[in-house]
Design a protein around this nucleic acid. Structure first.
Lengths: 125, 125
DNA sequence: CAAGTGTACTATAACGGATAGTACACCGAT
DNA sequence: ATCGGTGTACTATCCGTTATAGTACACTTG
């Protein structure tokens, strides 16, 4: 369910956060679903439990999940809405890259094609 | 000419590299132009000379500039072409973000609009 | 009670980034 | 020739972040 890159510069706990958000955004993780326990996931990924605890705490702080001590940790009802609010920033990122490509002389048509490609890809996944 | 963000996670030396590449890509820095000296820039930005040396060394390794010891450091003739080659990766980045936005349910039309915006923006800058 | 869950805390190792300081070599102008 | 600017090389050190190790405790469910 999770995939860790131990070489890149993005810390593990942040990779967990990002991937969880994507799983929620894409509807794979829904309201009420249980997240893997820190201990179980720590074994599966060979990662220290504290590192996962850090990631989960942050997800909780953002309101994406709640902990039921002694029971588990579950996706909240608002999770989908909350991650959706972050798309504005992502769009700004995309815009910034587009500006750079513009400056670098890439034709707009080519960028359009890439976007179209990305949206067409949903069929095969 | 350079703008440093001391809070983000991207290291200073990498910010220098990125910004220099953008200045070249956008044609502001042309062949033969002299880059700020390590000492001058170190004062202007309140950054250690070694940090800038690190950035400049990398730019040199990539063939974007050459050093003339005792004289200065200058943009090469191939610089513009070389930074242009990196646009493929940038386009891939953009595509990846577009895929995420797709998954998050953002209409493609809106992404198109952002790209269009980015390309129209060149007039005002 | 036992096993699984979350939580809290301290300590430590490891790495990268940035700094400080020094020294040397080169070029150009005066 | 000297001086002031340039690039270069090196060592040492500090600091913050990341990740780990280890322990202990509280809670819930079966």
């Amino acid at each position: 369910m999770f995939q860790i890159d131990r070489f890149g510069r993005t810390p593990i706990y942040e990779q967990i956060i990002d991937q969880t958000q994507r799983l929620i955004a894409s509807g794979i993780l829904k309201e009420g679903d249980q997240l893997p326990s820190v201990r179980a996931l720590s074994q599966e990924l060979s990662v220290n439990p504290n590192t996962l605890q850090k990631a989960y705490s942050e997800l909780e702080r953002r309101g994406l999940c709640v902990s039921a001590p002694g029971n588990g940790r579950f996706v909240t009802a608002e999770a989908f809405r909350i991650v959706g609010e972050g798309t504005k920033e992502r769009l700004e990122e995309l815009k910034k890259i587009a500006e750079e490509l513009c400056m670098a002389g890439m034709p707009m048509e080519q960028v359009f094609h890439a976007v179209n490609d990305a949206y067409g890809k949903e069929i095969e996944s």
